[in-house]
């Protein structure tokens, strides 16, 4: 009985985080592009993923991530983006989940750097597969370079949130 109550509580928290991630994702779409490079984004929604990963289990984080990706691409009416997001997001999440135990709460930002770089690798792999050309690989170094910067910044944001909200939100 008690565990069921916990589940409902957790479900509500996960739902809230999903809603938050979705809002950040939609707002980010309205921001102008940083550079005319396909696939380049700040990845602000990753803040929620990183926060969730260091608070909940990888499985629960995956639920938030996939709900955000699927709903996000429906709301943004950009169904072609879903495959890139899913492959990038999956690689990012798997990588961060594996590396999670090596990072303390003060080096979350570094974990996020790896996540961001892996996200771009996954995205580019999907693009090679979908576009059936290796031309897209030319963008990978630039994407990874900026992913390191944006990943560190979003990770730092997540780190501050986690350090200053000691309780599970």
């Amino acid at each position: 009985m008690k565990s069921k109550k916990m589940n409902a509580k957790k479900l509500a928290r996960l739902g809230l985080l999903t809603a938050l991630a979705l809002i950040i994702y939609i707002v980010e779409l309205r921001l102008p592009d940083i550079a005319p490079i396909p696939g380049m984004k700040l990845g602000l929604a990753n803040i929620v993923t990183v926060c969730a990963l260091f608070t909940f289990s990888p499985k629960e984080t995956a639920l938030i991530l996939y709900a955000r990706i699927i709903l996000g691409s429906i709301f943004a009416s950009n169904p072609s983006a879903i495959l890139y997001s899913i492959s990038g997001g999956t690689l990012c999440l798997v990588g961060m989940a594996l590396l999670r135990k090596h990072f303390s709460k003060k080096s979350i930002w570094l974990c996020s750097v790896y996540g961001a770089a892996l996200h771009n690798i996954g995205q580019t792999a999907a693009a090679v597969f979908i576009m059936r050309t290796t031309a897209v690989l030319a963008y990978l170094p630039i994407l990874i370079f900026f992913a390191c910067i944006s990943g560190a910044l979003t990770g730092l944001t997540a780190q501050f949130i986690i350090l200053r909200t000691n309780k599970k939100y």
């Binding site: 696939g39 950009n78 072609s80 979908i130 963008y139």
Partner: peptide, 10 residues
């Protein structure tokens, strides 16, 4: 060295 890519229209 960067190609011009339109992802949605491949």
């Amino acid at each position: 060295g960067l190609p011009i890519i339109c992802l949605p229209n491949r």
